[in-house]
Amino acid sequence: MPKNYIAKRIAKEFKDGMYVNLGIGIPTESANYIPEGTHVYLQTENGGLMFGPKPQRGESNPDIANAGAEPITMLPGGAVFDVATSFAMIRGGHIDMTVVGALEVDQEGSIASWKIPGKLLTGMGGAMDLLYGCKEVIVAMTHTDKYGKAKIRKKCTLPLTAAGVADLIITDKAVFRVNKDGLYLEELAPGVTASEVKQLTEAEIVNIKEWE
């Protein structure tokens, strides 16, 4: 698997002029691979539009940070604002695309990412608003969990972050499109076979026969 495969693959989804909100982790990394000539306007839910890379030491601004309170820079033309304005952008349908991580996603496009009863408690943060409001939702995650268990399921077993919202799923093994009638395999990662994907995916893959 090429290094940073998922992040690089996400970047292929960026189209010129898009307003995009990237979740923490791999989705954020994808900003490093935005194709040349493509201008993507990155939004951060704590109140920034058109932010750039992190600053040099000594040049940071204590009030210019991303949603993880990490230092960033603002690009020329960028704007800063309060969180009500930020979520008006998000919930109000003004953001073209969001890319999020997930614990599970299912063939109906439901996403679980905020809670494992008895184990993980973080709160939903801005994820529910993003998944509800953004025009296109991409889930980017490893294909299986650390125990090798399928994360793409017939039905999510964990508490949902949002029901029926995912459009595209990008993993280290494959890319799937979530249509109304189910999950479609669109692409295999380099060196991965359809039978391997079938075996590692609990969800039904509508068009798997075409790949086998």
């Binding site: 951060t44 109140g47 920034g48 601004n61 210019i64 800063v80 604002f81 309060d82």
Partner: peptide, 11 residues
């Protein structure tokens, strides 16, 4: 007057 992201403060 705010500087940078005013985030939740004005609300």
């Amino acid at each position: 007057q705010y500087k940078g992201m005013s985030n939740t403060n004005p609300i």
